[in-house]
Structures are given as structure tokens and as C-alpha cells.
Nucleic acid binder design. Sequence first.
RNA 1: GACCCCAUUGUCUAGCGGUUAGGACAUCACCCUUUCACGGUGAAAGCACGGGUUCGAAUCCCGUUGGGGUCGCCA
Length: 443
Amino acid sequence: MSTRVRFAPSPTGLLHVGGARTALFNWLYARHAKGVFVLRVEDTDEARNSQEAIDVIFSGLKWLGLDWDEGPQKGGDYGPYFQSQRKEIYLRYAQRLLDAKLAYDDKGAIRFKLPKKIVRVPDLICGAVHFDLSAEPDLTIVRPDGSFIFHLVNVVDDIEMKITHVIRGEDHLSNTPKHLALFEALGAAPPLYAHIPLILNRDGSKMSKRDEGAAVGDYAAKGFAPEAVRNYLCFLGWSPKDDREILLMDEVVALFELSNVHRHNARFDMDKLQWMNGQYLARMTLDRFVELGRPVLEKNGLVSAQTDPVYLRAALETVKEKVKLFTDLPIWMAYFFKDAFPMDADAAEKSLKKPGALDCLRDLRTRLERTSPWNAAQLEADLKSLAAEKKVKAGEFIHPCRVACSGRSIGPGLYQMLEVLGRARVLDRLDRASGATTGGMER
RNA sequence: GACCCCAUUGUCUAGCGGUUAGGACAUCACCCUUUCACGGUGAAAGCACGGGUUCGAAUCCCGUUGGGGUCGCCA
């Protein structure tokens, strides 16, 4: 029988990183076992349902590259994949329990009689865990208004959808003996269980909606690349057991085993995610960098449909291995697109107000007027020969020039930056900074 | 409170009876360098505690402490 796993989120309005990690582990296991990854929406709580909340789940999973084989938008032989559309099925199962006297009416609600016994829960990650159900109150499975409760629908769907492995958060471990009892009462063989550890905040507290990093939907806006977030999530509760940190998904799929998933919770470390994101930005193709970076610059009004794509691409290339977040792009690159770019006060103080700096800029301006061809190598050669002639260190020209042209003391390699900026912009900015012309430079 | 899970540097982890306890992020030096990153070298930082078992425990057992989870007509 082929492996079938499912991710069964409830539309709460956000996709929690813990949930995303659960989806990721299900996806990894399905791909590893060459099985099927099912997406099922647990929307039995009608008060909380909304199309927006459901879309958040879809877009979050897609952003992370977690494609499902069966489910909403995809179809499959075991649908529908929204629990709100499966009421007849649940009713049928509830009736079976009633008929078998394994459930009963209680003030309009239906309750399942939990067996008074010790139930052994075999878990692929935690090992066998025993629970004594004898003191547990019976399980409500249908409300007086006829709506169904999680425990029933979850079990019924896992039966109906022929789920073979349930990979879910450890917060469900205590529910599992009850679910096992339900499987038994319904005469169905239960799936194999794998309860994965939880993701906590950096300080060890429970991660809730409002905590930093909790919502997958926020990562794009925060400047992360999806491949970096996905890579980071793999390492929360799992490791390849060697020293690698950056792994291709194909490699993780090949290595991923449930038996290697940790039993202890992990804490979310934003610093490490940022480092990993920087690694991904530096290593990704320039095409991908442009694809993800352009929208950020557009959103900040620096780039529009009219922007020369060749220039944009060249400009992005200069900072690709420097920035760690896409959200850093506007501050790193404004001067490429605006002549009235911000001037960093400290940088100006240090480099432009320095005695002799303005003379250097004038001399450099004269030299660069004739630079040909206008490329990084020639720019470097001309600047250095000028410095040699004047018998000063190249830095005397480099630092004021950088600040004059970009308004910042940090940035891309100077010559590459000048090449991309082009002769006209560079000469104009050198003039403005040296006082040869009065410009509209922003403070 | 009851029940369940867990415990290696600040964080993520390797380790699965004998290791100078390894790697990564973060921190601090130094090197590289036109800046900032990257990269390189090095430093500081860990087996929660107490009992066992054993010739020998980070590793196995028990307890304590600490953290997390579950005890809904939420999912």
C-alpha cells in the first residue's frame, strides 16, 4: 500500500510556523516515501471560516513550495477535502456508533464511550506511550446543533482518505489514545503515528500568533526568500547528522526519516534564519534575485514599469552578495534610482568634510571625464593612477567618491558601482559634492 | 493539580559505554579588503542536579529540578 500522509490545518487566519513545519515534514516524508501528500481543510468550526483564512493556508504552503497531490484546487479520489462538505459522511459514522451502543445522546449532544482501559500508543518518534483512559470523561463527538467535533471528523477522514501515517504536532499526543479508541470502535485499522516536537519562542515560551516569526505570511514582507525559510525549518527538529547547514530540498527528501526526528522541542532563532537567508541570497541565481528583489524596490517607489530592466539587473547584482534581507534593498540601492538620494550625515562628515577631500573629488572628476571604456577595470586603473600621480593613497579618492555617489559609507565594490551608475550620474554627483554645482541633494 | 513528552555552550545540533565533547548561528579578537558583507584563523561558552549500573558514563536505570503539552459541546 502506498504511503499517504496529510496536513490538516484549520483556517485560523494565519499559517503558523509550527503548522508550516508540520506540513513540511509531511511533505518531506511523502516525497521520501514516494507517497501522496493530502491537504485537508478542517473547517468544522463554521464561525471561524472565511475564504481569506483558507487562502492564507494555500498561499503559505505554495510560498514554501509545499505542493500537495490531493486536496483543494487539486482534486483526488477521496474528496471533498473540506470538512464542511463532508457532513453526510460524519453523520453515517456517528450513527454507526450510536447503533452499536458505543455512543449515546447527552442533552442533544452525542458522546463516544471511551473504553475504561490503558491504551498503548505506538509512536514512530516517541516510542510506545501508555495512557490510562479509565478516568477520562466520554468524548463529545457531535454538538446539539448537529455540528461535528474535531476528534470524530479527524478519525473518520483519516479512515476515509486511507491515511497511512499521521505526522502531527506533539500537542496531539494526548489525544491519540482517544483517537485509537475511535478507530477500534469503528473497526478500522489506525494509521501509524509520528508526533513531532513543537517550535517555541527563542526564550522557550510557547509561540503564539503575535510572536515574532509566528506567521508564515509575514516572511515575504520581512524580506526572506522562501527557500531559505524552508531550509531553516527543516533543521528545527531534524538534522542530516553531518555538518551541512545549507541543503537542497532533494537532499533533504533523500535523507529524511521519521525515526531521525527529534523528541525535544526546538526554539526559533531569527538570527540564524537571517544568516541563512543571506547565504541563499548570495548563492541564488541573479534571475531569482531580480525576481524576488524587484517587487520590494517597486513597493518603495524606486522602480517602476519604466525602469530599464538591464540597469535594474546590473544594479541588483552589485548588492546581491551584500544584503541579508530583501527589505534591506531600498536603503542599499536608492541612489541607483534617485538623484535626490539620502546623504548619511556621519559618512559625509567623515569623508567629504575631510581636508582635501573636495580637491580629490575635483581631480577625480577631471580624470573620469576621459575614462574609456567606462567599466570597473578601467575605472580602477584610472583612479589608482591618479592617486599615484598625486602621491596619496587610493583611499583618499575612494571614500569621498563613494559617499558623493551613493550617500553611504557602505555599499558595493566602488568600481562596480560606478560602472553601473554610468558616467553622467557619477560626474554629476562628483560635481555636486565638490561644490562645483549646487545640486538637489537630499540631506 | 492529574496524566504525557522532553533535557549537550545563549540558540540549532553531532554524539548513541572509552572523544582533547565536533559543527553552525550569535558574541569577541585578528587576517583579507576601497567600505560593508563574504571568506579565513583564533577565543570565550555546554553534557541541569543527585543517586545508581559498570573497570569506565553526555550516552543505560531511578529520582529531583526545569521546560513543554493535554485534560472543551476549539482544532
